[in-house]
């Protein structure tokens, strides 16, 4: 069983978002970068699965050399080796093309449900279609049974259990597992594990961010005295006409 886990490097969840160059570029200065939380889950589950069934876990990221500390963290969590496609991730289509190029020899490709920076949720579907593999999106449980994947996935208003043959692409949702924290031995071992840097294939140049803006600020909170809490309902009903 060979699993390829896609990892993206994103700003920490508490980051204050600002922009430079006339609001066209995300301001990375002073920002703490982390492994995308959903990717941490898919990596952990991939490790759990290969520890029971045997096999290997390779992590792949599309990024420049400054993403190496996060890749080392993935290796410290237990991944066998890593691939870094040496390029700045332009958009979902571009990233997916890089992953699809590397993924052909694997049995499973794992991603997160979305990255918490661009929130596209695109890569898993794009990779699946580029490889012509089945897609199981937003999975909260992933198991292997008789060389098939059985997964539970979120749907609107509930969950469904889906079965697929291998190879296939699966994206991870919260609840899948508890993210693994690297231990000292893992951190030491990670230093000597292979991190292969490969060149990007130049495919797809279909979108471009022309500008960023911050969401409109609220005009200020109107406080209502707790003793007159009923007033809130009157305002929501009569003025805001919400129900």
């Amino acid at each position: 069983m060979k699993i390829l886990v896609c990892v993206s490097v994103v700003p920490d969840t508490t980051t204050k978002i600002t922009f430079t160059d006339n609001d066209t570029v995300f301001n990375r200065s002073g920002v703490q970068f982390i492994m995308n939380p959903y990717d941490e889950l898919s990596l952990t589950r991939a490790l759990e699965l290969t520890e029971t069934t045997g096999g290997s876990v390779t992590v792949i990221t599309i990024g420049e050399a400054d993403t190496d500390p996060i890749i080392r963290k993935a290796l410290a969590m237990g991944a066998t080796d890593a691939i870094r496609v040496d390029a700045s991730p332009k958009d979902g289509m571009y990233v997916a093309a890089q992953i699809a190029e590397q993924a052909k020899e694997y049995d499973l490709v794992f991603t997160g449900r979305e990255s918490i920076d661009y929130n596209g949720g695109q890569v898993q579907g794009l990779v699946a279609e580029m490889l012509q593999w089945p897609l199981i999106n937003v999975a909260t449980q992933i198991d292997l049974e008789n060389n098939e994947v059985v997964a539970s996935r979120d749907i609107d208003g509930g969950r469904e259990v889906v079965k697929s043959s291998l190879p296939c692409v699966i994206s991870a949702q919260k609840d899948l597992c508890e993210p693994r924290i690297p231990n000292m031995r893992g951190i030491m071992m990670a230093r000597s594990k292979p991190l292969n840097v490969v060149a990007a294939t130049d495919k797809y140049d279909y979108t471009k961010v022309s500008k960023y803006e911050l969401p409109p600020a609220k005009s200020g909170v109107k406080m209502i005295d707790a003793e007159n809490a009923e007033q809130l309902i009157d305002i929501l009903h009569n003025e805001e006409k919400l129900f």
Binding site: P11, T13, T15, I17, F19, F26, I116, D117, Y118, N119, D205, Y206, T207, K208, V209, S210, K211, Y212, E213, L214, P215
Partner: peptide, 16 residues
Amino acid sequence: KTAFSSKAIAHVELTA
């Protein structure tokens, strides 16, 4: 589109 988990809005050009 929303970006950075609703903390920003991105204007995206589609060139295809």
